[in-house]
Nucleic acid binder design. Structure first.
Lengths: 232, 232
DNA sequence: CGCGATTTGTGCACTCGTTCACAAGCGCAT
DNA sequence: ATGCGCTTGTGAACGAGTGCACAAATCGCG
């Protein structure tokens, strides 16, 4: 996974109401949430750490430790109450309110993201689409009209948008990030293959699709070298 | 970043020719590669660890240690030879040969991936598209015709495809993974929000776009709680 | 009511990754 | 040729994350 984090350099304060949760745990909570939803659909109303861990693809000790961070209480001898745990994780992740997201760049990837149902079904609402290309402005995708990027500040402000998604070419990404930040966005998901510089307090996560393939390529390469060596 | 790894449980053998490289380092190499290309385009022929680290968004000590793992030699007092280092990283990542990739699922996301230029420009060649939906078969995307998934095994075999990308709905993903593995694919990039079970020796990386947003949501939530507390 | 089966929560040891700080090496100017 | 400034490579300290193993807690049943 490729990612880039900024802001809050290491020290989660840890107020009583807001226990400090390790970043590694936070990164796994969404996966647990997905697994829980899947178990709930299958009719389970409780789940043991063992079964839940299997559904989430981790080992059970790690899962228990992770859940312990959010003051969770399963019942010993029984397991976790699925519905209750879903609620707890959603609360911690801040998914109790639908979050509005601004998507910038409706090229190949942006277009797909705009239509991706996974966002809407998991706590997010794509509130507005933007592009710098005037010829794309006005286009309608999924009942949302594409606006020119100059309107971004105004829309972000009126819609109370805190999260921005950048799906532009790399050369445009930093400029878009600046506009987003100046408009009040404090979290950015960046699909452009470049490093963004943002002021402290703004979180950036980076997803680079080619990077994932290159990591796989490494393992392919290694496997090939090893089996080759074995054949000798 | 959300990811899922399988196979080679921890122990990279580390043959003399193939030094054992920590997974964390491997995950950063593609980013260094991108930064190097960008520096090369800008006309630099050498780069210090400091400047390269800045371009890649890491600190210089980490970068130096990472590069030291691949027996790299920069020159003290000068820095790294950009072209040479590009070659070295490409070699380690196995990017010296163009790798063929099979893409399964040409829905919203798959469609975008098929057209994503970032793959082709960075060492990969999408060799074939597949879908289970007969009404999509025959459709042409980017000069590639969509084939029915039943043809997958044959095509993977004749084209020597080792990497598969799954961009199907979650419920279809495991089935597709099984077909891929049985056809000889040994690395899978999974965009479906579910855990795949694959035999040992097969590598799986998972990218879940909604998970990234949910992680950002957590930080938003935390920031809101903190500034709220400060205002009190 | 008590006992055994089961499962959580967690202290501890350990591995892995990061960061610091500095010695060794290189080039250039004098 | 020598010394000086710069940069790499790395040993060592540190910190975060993982996994084990077990005590504490809960339920069901006799």
């Amino acid at each position: 996974m490729s990612q880039q984090r900024t802001g809050n350099p290491g020290n989660t304060p840890g107020t009583p109401d807001f226990p400090d949760i390790p970043e590694a745990t936070v990164a796994r909570l969404p996966e647990y949430l997905r697994a829980l939803h899947s178990l709930a659909e299958a009719g389970h109303d409780t789940a043991s750490s063992e079964s839940l861990a299997a559904a989430a693809g981790v080992n059970s000790a790690k899962l228990r430790k992770d859940l312990s961070h959010l003051g969770s209480n399963g019942t010993r001898g029984v397991g976790y109450n699925v519905e209750r745990l879903i609620g707890q994780i959603e609360h911690v992740l801040g998914l109790t309110t639908l979050r509005a997201v601004a998507l910038v760049g409706v090229g190949n990837l942006g277009h797909a993201l705009a239509g991706y149902s996974g966002f809407t079904t998991r706590g997010f609402h794509i509130a507005a689409l933007f592009d710098a290309d005037a010829s794309r402005v006005g286009e309608k995708i999924n009942n949302l009209v594409v606006r020119h990027i100059d309107e971004l500040a105004a829309v972000v402000d009126t819609c109370q948008i805190a999260i921005g998604v950048i799906a532009t070419p790399a050369h445009a990404a930093q400029g878009v990030a600046d506009v987003l930040v100046n408009s009040g966005v404090t979290s950015i998901l960046n699909f452009a293959p470049c490093v963004l510089s943002v002021p402290e307090g703004v979180d950036v996560r980076k997803v680079d699709l080619a990077v994932e393939l290159q990591i796989l390529s490494f393992h392919e390469h290694r496997k090939a070298a090893l089996t080759g060596a074995v054949t000798l």
